[in-house]
Design a protein around this nucleic acid. Structure first.
Lengths: 146, 146
DNA sequence: TATATTATTGCCACATGTTGCAATTACACC
DNA sequence: GGTGTAATTGCAACATGTGGCAATAATATA
């Protein structure tokens, strides 16, 4: 809401796209939900407000917003997940706990070593941006030791 | 075919499962295809031989065979891919070229550094087995430089 | 403010994977 | 070889995501 919308409106129109009520509702809803939101959940929430908005529109809007840099999408265990682009975004990788589902961001540098190994050993230019790694988080590890 | 089947038959029955014609046909077909096979392609090939075998059966069979260790499954850009378990299997990670689709295996050790960093920095026990990383392979990199 | 253009929407249909369920079938036991 | 039981199968239905297409609506221009 408030002034943030103006930014987004400008961003969208600058790029030659139109600011539709659907897009505003979808963005509002995503804001309200906060954090990492499965697109399926976003669809449900949006349709709570505006039942006429189709699944298709939400997915297409997320793709567009992603291209515009307004949101960041990731694939978590086969499910599409989005979040409002954080300010400190450089590379946007996630670690997801298999047990509790907790999602954390990890800094770019942690992949530097792997990236250069893949390049030197295999001549392979790895695309590690926006990677999602599964595992077990600190808390769940501690719990399973008790 | 030949003696390998006996091994699989034994493996399946030892685990309390049944050796059905469907499972044999599916395994035969996967053998003939070789390498990394998208399950969608496997379904098509199987139905060439036995049209009555359902998609569902192929997917369920792949899940079972995967649990038994007969095949290894991976997720490549949202698509399920399987291959007959190689003999030298330790950890089974792939690098896939975004341009030409080429798939290569990478040795376990390449992830050691990342794994230990994630553990020491975040207390996160990463599950890096069977990881699939996208990027651009050596050949395609060379080509794009010309 | 009216109009033309062009993006956008909603609907339909499809692709891939998964689950529930009743009918079938492999196999262990006699 | 017959029989009981439990695994398995095929079907139908659902979930998630994507693409085509005609109708609609946002914006630039006059």
């Amino acid at each position: 809401m408030d002034h943030k919308h103006l930014d987004y409106a400008a961003r969208i129109r600058e790029s030659g796209y139109k600011l539709t009520p659907q897009r505003q509702i979808i963005l509002d809803t995503l804001y309200e939900m906060g954090g990492h939101v499965p697109v399926t959940a976003l669809v449900e929430a949006v349709q709570q407000t505006a039942p006429a908005i189709d699944r298709t529109t939400v997915y297409r809007t997320m793709n567009l917003f992603s291209e515009l840099g307004l949101v960041v999408g990731s694939d978590m265990d086969g499910a599409a997940v989005v979040e409002i682009t954080p300010q400190n975004l450089a590379v946007h990788s996630h670690i997801v706990c298999r047990e509790c589902g907790h999602v954390a961001h990890v800094p770019d540098e942690i992949y530097d070593e792997l990236r250069s190994h893949l390049l030197s050993d295999f001549g392979f230019s790895a695309d590690l941006d926006n990677l999602t790694i599964e595992g077990v988080c600190h808390e769940c590890l501690a719990q399973s030791h008790s």
